[in-house]
Nucleic acid binder design. Structure first.
Length: 558
DNA sequence: CAAAGACCTG
DNA sequence: CAGGTCTTTG
């Protein structure tokens, strides 16, 4: 009872920021090198194939969005602390020797590679068959534009005054949602491109065939390497602009007590270092509707829908491809591998950044934007071709929790502060839940909240001592100091663009703390409880992409 | 009384 | 972040 009031206040001095830390270095040189290398390969393949058939303008949004996160904020990152998770998981720890797996997997994978190659060849033939009859019919005139402009997605981040100014380095999230891109699957849709070829010129077809062959082989190689080295590194890139789509239609829930804050200044949370840029209406944009992007729908604490309507614009709901991809990788992997080659130093990242926009695309994203019909066709068609190797699809279900899981949990915190255990289970399909695991995860979120509330209280008090009187003056914007702190804590690697809904919640929380403290409520031992209660009702739906088990792995490696 | 959380500590 | 304690809740 009594311990509630005192302790937090003690350290609320504005100086006690948990900053000044080092980046947790988890990338090995080898990882880097291979990744770049493979990216380059992919790029070439894609370029070739596309160059053959597509009118250049067709699918490119026009800007190449450099997604290389090369320039991290020189800022201090979190304390580098070993992520001690998998180690001491007490009871249900299975301590597999990872390197073993790798070795064994090596040969097996090779065999599978051959298999794959063959199968892909089959696929090509299918493709050609599909192409030839069609080409003459089409004639040279009818190259229609098959890619609806992707402006819609882009507008989200482009139009955001804050995104632009506050996080120039955060470019991991350009496209729409969707997260994982699979080298394997990706090639296939490309292979369908010939349909677009204007004329039925034999030469073209012939050339195409050659290139296809080459491309496919390369792609397979790439996949193999990837799989052996760092399966999912950089594979996923969260696209938050879609979170809103994950739910019904309430794009704009405004919980009671939440209102638009139109104050031109967000004093406390706007650190001195922020100079409003010309033309960027910093504060006057209402927090409630910062972007045209949908807000996270605030959902009452209900059971998460296991599957969102596939009718949503957001391709991330294309679950099938997802699973599909899992299967492929699983097969190649045999089981998750953790191989680290020792290799050459990193290479130029130029080639990569050049092509990164496409490289970042996900198969199912492509499918909707660029390959309306063909993708599904190929996709379905090719499926049976693959594996003679059946594999338990949910292959890498592990018992312990990996650092990747932790990362993912943190990202999830942006959407849900109080996830139920069932929600957690739904979002960690690759985790074998038991009592310990569950409580550990719950504990994680408990810790997350702790940090969160401490920060909120701290900044609220700071605002008060700074002379702020109107809670509406407070808001958490992307350039706020508190935002930086939070982002650093929950999203170190900028794996995800912090969703606007989180900013809203944070703002609200901040204001609530402000009100409470300035009203002197903090003398009450349990004065925070009402705030907790409010916040606990404001969890949003979590984007489906986060559900992917691959996502954890990807995060693991990055 | 058990479970869920907050809070404290290391 | 994990462990432990203490409260609260149902």
């Amino acid at each position: 009872m009594e311990r509630e009031g005192s302790p937090p206040t003690a350290e609320l001095g504005r100086d006690s920021l948990p900053s000044g830390q080092l980046p947790s270095s988890s990338l090995t040189d080898a990882d880097w090198f291979w990744d770049e290398n493979i990216q380059a390969k992919r790029a070439r393949v894609e370029t070739i194939v596309r160059g053959m058939c597509l009118s250049p303008s067709a699918m490119l949004p026009g800007s190449e969005r450099a997604r290389e996160s090369s320039c991290y904020p020189g800022k201090s990152r979190e304390r580098k602390r070993k992520q001690s998770l998998p180690t001491h998981q007490g009871p249900q720890k299975s301590g597999p020797a990872w390197d073993h797996r790798l070795k064994k997997g090596g040969t097996r994978v090779k065999e599978q590679l051959h298999l794959l190659k063959q199968q892909l060849r089959h696929l090509q033939e299918h493709v050609l068959q599909a192409t030839e009859p069609r080409a003459p019919a089409q004639g040279s005139g009818g190259t229609e534009q098959r890619s609806p402009p992707r402006a819609k997605q882009r507008s989200n981040f482009l139009s955001s005054p804050w995104t632009v100014e506050s996080k120039p380095h955060q470019n991991s999230n350009k496209d729409i949602c969707g997260a994982v891109k699979s080298r394997t699957v990706e090639v296939q849709p490309q292979a369908e491109e010939p349909m677009l070829c204007p004329s039925g010129s034999q030469a073209l077809v012939e050339a195409l065939r050659k290139e296809l062959n080459r491309a496919v082989s390369q792609a397979v190689d790439s996949v193999l390497q990837q799989v052996l080295l760092g399966p999912l590194r950089h594979l996923t890139r969260q696209e938050p602009s879609c979170q809103g789509l994950a739910s019904e239609g309430r794009s704009h829930a405004s919980p009671p007590g939440r209102s638009a804050h139109k104050d031109p200044l967000a004093l406390t949370t706007l650190p001195r270092r922020v100079q409003p840029q010309a033309g960027v209406p910093l504060g006057n944009s209402s927090l409630a509707t910062p972007l045209d992007s949908p807000m996270c729908p605030v959902s009452p604490r209900t059971v998460p829908k296991p599957y969102q309507s596939p009718l949503a614009n957001c391709p991330l709901t294309a679950v099938p491809s997802h699973i599909w991809e899992n299967q492929i990788l699983s097969q190649l992997l045999g089981r998750g591998s953790d191989g680290h080659w020792s290799g050459s130093p990193p290479q130029d990242s130029l080639s990569q950044s050049r092509t990164s926009p496409e490289a970042t695309q996900q198969p199912w994203v492509l499918s909707q934007q660029q390959l309306p019909l063909s993708f599904t066709t190929v996709h379905l068609e090719s499926r049976p071709l693959l594996p003679s190797v059946k594999m338990e699809q949910a292959s890498h279900i592990q018992e312990g929790l990996s650092p990747g899981h932790l990362k993912k949990a943190k990202l999830m915190f942006f959407f849900a502060r109080y996830p139920s255990s069932s929600l957690l289970k739904a979002y960690f399909p690759d985790v074998q839940f038991n009592r310990c695991i569950t409580s550990q995860m719950i504990k994680w979120f408990s810790n997350f909240r702790e940090f969160y509330y401490i920060q909120m209280e701290k900044y609220a008090r700071q605002a008060i001592s700074d002379g702020v009187t109107n809670p509406k003056m407070l808001s958490v914007l992307r350039d706020s100091e508190i935002f930086r702190v939070l982002n650093t804590h929950y999203n170190k690697g900028n794996d995800l663009e912090v969703p606007d809904c989180f900013l809203e919640i944070a703002t609200l929380t901040l204001q609530e703390f402000f009100r409470a403290v300035s009203a002197g409520k903090d003398t009450d031992p349990s004065w925070k409880k009402p705030i907790y209660k409010i916040i606990s009702k404001l969890d949003s739906d979590i984007p489906e992409i986060l559900k992917s088990s691959n996502y954890s792995q990807e995060l693991f490696r990055s």
